[in-house]
Design a protein around this nucleic acid. Structure first.
Lengths: 116, 116
DNA sequence: TATTTCCATCGACGATGATCGATATCATTC
DNA sequence: GAATGATATCGATCATCGTCGATGGAAATA
């Protein structure tokens, strides 16, 4: 047997681990937010005050080609952050109501248990 | 000149774009959160209530090798989410006070301007 | 129906990122 | 100071992601 070191390593903390499904959901959400261009899209939609914005707005804003814009929009929809609506040949995107609030609330709540 | 289509595409929205630096900061933050293992680390530290946790706690929790744990911890520190402290040969990490709150507040605030 | 326009999907390529074995560093112990 | 143990860094490998040209589909127009 080995003696304990002078400085104790740690007192094991054994809170429940993040549920695998829950961790995967959060990972997808944050992955969706972890891109400059997708953040620009969200910022644009926030400034639109929840109104729908046409795809054609995004391309000049982002400075990338059309397939790339489409790709990013799809990712945001699949993450549950945006809703898509088609009118004629145009496609419109808007913030899914409450999506960002929920994420913000989750972070604030989690951190609320931590003393300053 | 071309006539306007039957369905108007959109009324251009011209709010200020996200400042490049600001977008880059946010991107780094969300990138740091966009990984299953780093989320598990944060969850563990949240359950520790802001207390320091030794590195040796994380390896069995994550189920990855030691260099990988070290890699993830470094990313979280560089993102400004964790603080590192060394005692003897051991390294301890803790949540940087207010970091998660700020992020949560930012999201909630941004979304606050959007009508339900 | 042919044409045009808008947008999504596909396939490929280059870049970025996660992982791990090997090695380095540093403090402790012998 | 040699040996041990904990952690960080390095270098290579493999997977994932962002990007874009080419193509496809659907609606509007001629």
């Amino acid at each position: 047997m080995k003696e304990l070191p002078l400085v104790e390593c740690c007192t094991p903390i054994s809170g429940p681990a993040l549920a695998p499904g829950e961790a995967a959901d959060l990972e997808r959400l944050f992955k969706a937010l972890a891109d400059r261009h997708r953040l620009q899209i969200l910022n644009c939609l926030l400034q639109a005050g929840g109104e729908s914005v046409c795809v054609c707005e995004f391309q000049p804003l982002l400075g990338v080609k059309q397939p790339t814009v489409s790709h990013h929009l799809k990712q945001l929809v699949e993450a549950g952050l945006l809703d898509r609506e088609k009118r004629g040949t145009y496609a419109y995107y808007r913030l899914r109501p409450g999506a960002l609030e929920r994420l913000g609330g989750l972070l604030s709540e989690s951190a609320a248990g931590v003393p300053a």
